Amino acid sequence: MEKRVDIQKPLEQLEGFEWPAPPDDATGLAKAAQSLYKRPIGSLNAHELSRLIGQDIGLPWLLPIAVKILRETVDDQHLTGFYDDDLLTAVLTRKSNVWRSHPHLVADLKEIIPLLKAISPYIQADIQGFLTEAET
């Protein structure tokens, strides 16, 4: 059973690590990630989640939120023809050690994937990679 997490807390509190300010010449991604690390996780939108997850930041707290968003929006694809491919890709492309630690999320994703329609070949490749990683 997944333990409840206070989504009003930022990753900084949840992980117990204060991320120092990036240097002036840091990349935009590094600056954005540091800023997002200090925001309550419940306030992060799909794009912000995909940025952090894609960098393997805060996965124990952010992956369940991301999978919940993917589950809640999967039906929207049928209505609008749009699905958040960035968030889906960020989630699907995590390594097998992540999925070994979160088997309940693997099960959730395996329920979501068949509901997706007209997926690009790139996302299909990510799905196949996820299924392979989840099995190893």
Rank of each mutant, 00 (worst) to 15 (best):
Ala26Glu: 08
Thr27Gln: 04
Ala30Tyr: 03
Lys31Gln: 12
Lys31Met: 12
Ala32Asn: 07
Ser35Glu: 14
Leu36Glu: 06
Lys38Gly: 08
Lys38Ile: 09
Arg39Asn: 07
Pro40Trp: 10
Ile41Glu: 05
Gly42Cys: 05
Gly42Arg: 05
Ser43Thr: 13
Ser43Ile: 05
Leu44Ser: 06
Ala46Leu: 05
His47Ile: 13
Arg51Tyr: 08
Arg51Val: 15
Leu52Tyr: 04
Leu52Phe: 08
Leu52Ile: 09
Gly54Gln: 02
Gly54Met: 01
Gly54Glu: 02
Gln55Leu: 15
Asp56Ser: 14
Asp56Lys: 13
Ile57Arg: 10
Ile57Asn: 01
Gly58His: 09
Gly58Ser: 12
Gly58Thr: 12
Leu59Arg: 04
Leu59Gly: 04
Leu59Met: 11
Pro60Cys: 14
Pro60Val: 11
Pro60Gly: 09
Pro60Asn: 07
Trp61Cys: 02
Leu62Thr: 08
Leu63His: 04
Pro64Lys: 08
Pro64Ser: 08
Pro64Ala: 07
Ile65Cys: 07
Ala66Asn: 05
Ala66Gly: 06
Val67His: 02
Val67Pro: 02
Lys68Arg: 15
Lys68Ile: 04
Lys68Ser: 15
Ile69Pro: 02
Arg71Gln: 06
Arg71Met: 03
Thr73His: 13
Val74Cys: 02
Asp75Met: 08
Asp75Thr: 10
Asp75Asn: 14
Asp76Cys: 09
Asp76His: 10
Asp76Leu: 15
Gln77Glu: 11
His78Asp: 09
Thr80Pro: 11
Thr80Tyr: 08
Phe82Tyr: 15
Tyr83Arg: 09
Asp84Cys: 09
Asp85Ile: 10
Asp86Lys: 11
Leu88Thr: 01
Leu88Cys: 09
Thr89Pro: 00
Thr89Gln: 06
Ala90Cys: 13
Val91Ala: 01
Val91Asp: 00
Leu92Ser: 07
Thr93Tyr: 05
Arg94Asn: 13
Arg94Ile: 04
Lys95Val: 05
Ser96His: 03
Ser96Val: 03
Asn97Ser: 14
Trp99Tyr: 06
Trp99Pro: 04
Ser101Arg: 14
Ser101His: 10
His102Pro: 01
His102Gly: 00
Pro103Gln: 08
Pro103Met: 04
His104Gln: 14
Val106His: 01
Ala107Trp: 01
Ala107Gly: 01
Asp108Ala: 08
Asp108Leu: 01
Lys110Tyr: 02
Lys110Met: 12
Ile113Trp: 00
Leu116Met: 13
Lys117Cys: 01
Lys117Asn: 04
Ala118Ser: 13
Ala118Leu: 05
Ala118Tyr: 05
Ala118Asp: 10
Ala118Gln: 08
Ser120Cys: 12
Tyr122Trp: 11
